[in-house]
Design a protein around this nucleic acid. Structure first.
Length: 486
RNA sequence: GGUACCGUGGCCGAGUGGCUAGGCGGUGGUCUGCAAAACCAUAGACAGCGGUUCGAAUCCGCUCGGUACCUCCA
């Protein structure tokens, strides 16, 4: 079965055929760096990390571009107000670029914690002002934009006569005309739905650059169009981002590409769904977001305790990327417990004795996992398969099933490939000072064994209880005691 | 108001015409000095009402409920 991807443009799953195999170009909208990354930022990062990893696994040479928005776009509507980064800079008495650097570093640190691979290229909007100005110029030349008092606006009505504005989001400009709210400061525009390609900066605006039209800054949608074209070409395979960017951001990108180059830039549009809190979108503007650092430390009123980066990653992967995921402590704890079970399985494989033959056929699992991923990156199904396999491993441990040495090796590799390499999950406990702890535990368990042999259960229980208090759990098995971090 | 999407067991969450999703939790059992873990077994679901069909959680219609976008947002 070939890889299929749900293409938002046509609202259906399509077979993935790269424009220039074996090369694949993928562009994903990254963060605006004016605040700490929250759970909502983790979702697209992880979603497209999975896409990146799986495409490479299939043998494609992927160029993955994820931008950093570091140009201050406006807080309010397209015409008025302070820009986000400038506002933050003023509040904290910093240069805008200090704000950008600070939050970019913190974003990177969070992404590393979540084991998100670095993109191939991570361009910044401020570093590509020239490219954006060039593209605006092309759009003006082609007659799809007009100037007004130093600003340049995209002429949606004119564009719509030739192309169709709204083909991604399913909107019609008549509806937009009726439904767009009355906003102040729009008198420069011919129509309320026109959007800025270049904005003249008012004197208070901190971030501005010279251009043929005015001292100003590029419109919000320009950077992705310009940088996508620069690094991936006028046409490329995949463009991703959150569903909330569908309109107007991605719709306008499509319009800009067609206005500048006469054709679409993107073949497959992919959109991840939102993370919700109590059924409501987690978002900056709604002020109901929990930052990743708060998750990792547990310091937020909604959090009953801390959740590790891998728990967050697993939690997100347990839902399909096009479904909403509702945050709750219970769901997170269930995810954490399930994930730990999988890592226990991996450890167990190493200790297992191979049988003469296999009583269960484990070979189909590889194909099952591939099928799940090929079906629009269905990670919850992959995880379900890994759980089924985990059950088999436990049965072997209990002497209720056997696997040959070859099959055991196969299963070990399968977990390595799928759990670690493709889902990008790693056993966080491995990162502890395991060597020392290992030998300490050996000694302690030997003492407890002695106590038990002497029927000194008081001592045996005392050891178990004391360890339990520092989150170490003793598991008595037929073959002696084992231990695990709770 | 317009557009789009969704409503699955106590919780989370796949599936989308006939075949067990899976996890967490529950119940019973095996094991055990006890407990935990593990294993085995098991209960519990497709918002409601109509329709299509031999057969629908899955298709169609209506109703109810929810969410997103239409202003910056991942």
């Amino acid at each position: 079965m070939p890889l299929t991807i749900y293409n938002t443009l046509n609202r259906k799953k399509e077979i993935f055929e790269p424009l220039k195999a074996p090369h694949v170009g993928m562009y994903v909208c990254g963060p605006t760096v004016y605040g700490d990354a929250h759970l909502g930022h983790a979702r697209p990062a992880i979603t497209f990390d999975i896409v990146f990893r799986f495409l490479m696994h299939l043998g494609y040479k992927v160029r993955y571009v994820r931008n950093i928005t570091d140009v201050g776009h406006l807080v309010n509507d397209a015409d008025e107000g302070e820009d986000k980064i400038g506002k933050k800079a003023r509040l904290e008495q910093l240069e805008p670029m200090e704000v950008v650097k600070y939050y970019t570093d913190r974003y990177h640190a969070n992404m590393d914690q979540l084991n998100v691979l670095h993109p191939s290229i991570e361009p910044t909007a401020s570093g590509h002002i020239i490219e954006q100005i060039e593209m605006v110029g092309k759009i003006i030349e082609n007659g799809f934009a007009y100037q007004a008092e130093g600003s340049v606006y995209f002429d949606v009505e004119k564009y719509n006569k030739i192309h169709r504005y709204g083909k991604l989001s399913g909107r019609k400009i008549e509806e937009l005309r009726e439904n767009t709210r009355e906003l102040a400061g729009q008198e420069q525009k011919r129509n309320s739905f026109d959007f800025a390609l270049w904005k003249k900066a008012d004197p208070a605006h901190l971030m501005h650059w010279p251009s043929p039209w005015s001292e100003g800054f590029p419109g919000w949608h320009m950077e992705c169009s310009a940088m996508g074209a620069k690094y991936l070409g006028e046409t490329f395979d995949i463009h991703g981002g959150g569903m909330d960017l569908l309109f107007p951001h991605h719709e306008s990108e499509i319009a800009q590409a067609n206005a500048a180059n006469g054709h679409d830039a993107v073949k497959y549009w992919m959109h991840n769904n939102m993370i919700t809190v109590d059924g409501q979108k987690m978002g900056k503007s709604l002020n109901n977001f929990i930052t990743l650092n708060e998750f990792f430390s547990g310091k937020h009123e909604k959090l009953k305790r801390a959740y590790s980066p891998m728990t967050i990653r697993f939690f997100i992967l347990q839902a399909h990327y096009r479904s909403t995921v509702d945050f709750s402590n219970d769901a997170l704890q269930a995810a954490e417990k399930g994930m730990k079970k999988l890592f226990e399985t991996v450890k167990l494989i190493g200790r297992l004795q191979a049988g003469g033959g296999s009583s269960i056929d484990v070979r189909p699992f590889e194909e099952l996992c591939i099928q799940a991923m090929e079906d629009d990156f269905n990670t919850p199904i992959v995880i379900a398969h890994l759980f089924e396999l985990s059950k088999i491993i436990n049965q072997i441990n209990d002497g209720k099933a056997t696997l040959s040495a070859d099959d055991l090796e196969f299963v070990k590799n399968l977990y390595q490939t799928w759990l670690n390499d493709l889902l990008g999950l790693r056993d966080e406990k491995d990162e502890d000072d395991s060597q020392v702890i290992e030998s300490l535990m050996e000694t302690i368990l030997a003492l407890r064994k002695e106590a038990k042999l002497n029927k000194d259960y008081a001592t045996a229980d005392r050891i178990r209880d004391a360890l339990s208090k520092i989150n170490i759990e003793i598991k008595d098995t037929r073959d002696g005691a084992e231990w695990v971090f709770k």
